[in-house]
Simulated assay, not measured.
Amino acid sequence: MPHHDVDLEAGSLSEWIPDPRRKSISLSLMSAHEDTNFRIYAEYKLCIKSQMNGKDLERTANHLFSYCDFDRGWPAFHSLDDIKDSSKGYLVKDTLIVEAEVTLVRKAPPAHYILKIDSYSFLLAILKIKGASFYSTDIFEASGYKWRLYFYPDGDKERYGEGCISLYVSIEDTSALQLGWEIDANVTFFVYDQIRDEYLMFQDTKRLHEINKECGIAQLLDLSYFKNPTNGFLFHDKCVVGVEIFANIYTGVGECLPVPEKFYYNPYTWKINDYSKCANVLYSEVFVRGNHHWKLRLCPKGDFGQEGKSLSLYLELVESEPATRIYADYKFQLKNQESGEDFELTGLDVFSSSTPSWGFSEFLSINDVEDSSKGFLVEDALIIQVEIIHISAVKKFS
C-alpha cells in the first residue's frame, strides 16, 4: 500500500527515556495535521530496526486519526532491557533506528475501474444463497491488458482475510501473450469515503505469470471500520471500491557486462619503414584479438591540437555492428631499438560503432621521436606495439 517510510534516529537513549524506573519502551504514531476538521484512516507499521542481524521488532495496527485523536501506538512496545542488550543489535553506539509505514488518501477517483454497490446487504444475501464469497466484475482493460476485479465483502477467509474486506485483480485472456510471459503489476486499490469525498489507497506490487495471475490484499480494511457509518465507507448500505493498474511486461531483453577476459596473445607489432616519407595518417593492417577486429591509426605529425608537436596514436575497433560495445584495457609501446627502454602508455576505454577509436593525441613529442639519440627512429623505421590486455564485450540477451 502507498506509504511514507520515515527513518527516525534517536540521539542518546538515556536522554530519550529519562525515567530510570521505566521497564518498556513506548512507541506511537502522531499526526501533525493542524486542520481541526481532518480525519485520516491509517494502517501503519512501527518498527525498531536491528542494526546487526535484521531481526527487527515491528507491530502493525490501524486507526482513524483526527484533530482530537491524533496519536496511537503502544505504551509498552518492547522490553527496555531487550533494547539495551548489545547482542540484539537494536541499540548501537547509543543510537536507535525507528521506521514507520503509513497509508495515504486522495481525492481523485481510480482511473481504470470502479465498482459501485448500491446495496451491500443485498450483495451479501446473493453470495450466501450462491455459496460464494466474492463478487467478480466484467473484464476491463488497463495498461494494455485485460483484467477482472474481485470483491470479498465479508473477507477472503481462505487467505486470512476474515474480519476485513478483500480486493484482488486477475489478468485475463493471456493466450495472446508470448510463451513464458511475465508482467510486473503495480496495483492500487481504492475504498471510497462517501462523507468526505476521498479515497483510501492500498497498493500491491507483484510479478504475474502463467501460474500466478492474481494479486491483491486479503486484509484490505478492517470490517469494523468499513461498516461504521461515521467513517463513510459503507454509508446507507452503499459502498464504492476501485482499482488502478500499471503493468509492464517482462520481455527478457537486456544486456550483460561480463567479467573481463585476460588475453595472452603476443602484442601486435607494426613496423613502419620510410617513416620520413609517410603521410600524416597511417593505418596498420587489421588484426584479431579476443574475437574482435582492430587496427592502429598513427598521425606522425599529430592531430587534435597537437599538429607539429606530438605523434598521435589510436586503437580502432573495425567491426560495424551498431550494438557492439567493448571495454578494452590496452597498452601502446613505441619500441626503443637501441636501449630497449620502450616508451609506453596504457588506456581503458569503451569502443563502439559511435566511438570506435581511442588513444592519445599527445603520445610522444615529435622531437623525441625524431631525435636519433633516443633510439626510437632507426634507419628511418619506427616500431609500434599494442597489447590488448583485457576485453569485456557487452552481451545482449533475450
Rank of each mutant, 00 (worst) to 15 (best):
V6A: 07
L8T: 13
W16Y: 11
P20L: 01
R21N: 13
K23T: 13
I25M: 06
L27W: 04
L29V: 07
L29R: 00
H33R: 12
E34D: 12
D35R: 01
N37R: 07
R39Q: 15
I40N: 13
Y44W: 08
Y44N: 09
K45W: 04
L46I: 11
D56P: 13
L57N: 06
L57T: 04
T60G: 14
N62F: 00
N62K: 00
S66R: 02
D69T: 14
F70E: 06
D71C: 11
D71I: 07
R72F: 12
P75L: 03
H78D: 12
H78N: 10
D81C: 10
D81W: 05
K84V: 02
D85R: 05
S87T: 12
G89P: 10
G89N: 04
Y90M: 06
V98P: 05
V98L: 11
V102I: 15
T103L: 04
A108W: 03
P110G: 05
K116W: 00
S119D: 13
L123I: 08
L124T: 09
L127S: 08
K128F: 04
G131M: 08
E141K: 14
S143Q: 05
W147S: 03
R148L: 07
F151N: 02
Y152Q: 06
G155D: 04
K157E: 13
E158L: 09
R159L: 11
Y160W: 13
V169H: 00
S170I: 07
E172W: 08
D173H: 09
L177E: 06
D184E: 11
D184P: 00
Q194F: 05
I195K: 10
R196V: 06
R196I: 05
D197A: 14
E198Q: 15
M201T: 15
M201I: 10
Q203R: 15
T205L: 05
K206H: 12
R207K: 15
L208A: 02
H209S: 14
I217C: 02
D222T: 03
N231Q: 10
F233Y: 14
F233D: 00
F233G: 01
H236I: 05
V241Q: 04
G242A: 09
A247H: 02
G254V: 07
F263Y: 15
W270A: 00
I272V: 12
K277H: 12
A279G: 14
S284M: 00
E285D: 13
V286W: 01
F287A: 02
V288C: 15
G290D: 09
K295L: 09
L296A: 06
P300C: 08
P300N: 06
E307T: 08
E321H: 11
P322Y: 06
K331C: 11
K331G: 03
F332I: 05
Q333R: 15
L334H: 03
N336S: 07
Q337K: 12
E344K: 08
L345Y: 00
S352R: 09
S353T: 09
S354D: 11
P356H: 07
W358T: 01
F363I: 01
S373P: 04
K374Y: 00
G375S: 03
L377E: 03
V378Y: 01
D380A: 03
A381F: 03
L382V: 11
Q385R: 15
Q385L: 12
E387S: 15
H390Q: 13
K395A: 13
K396N: 14
F397C: 09
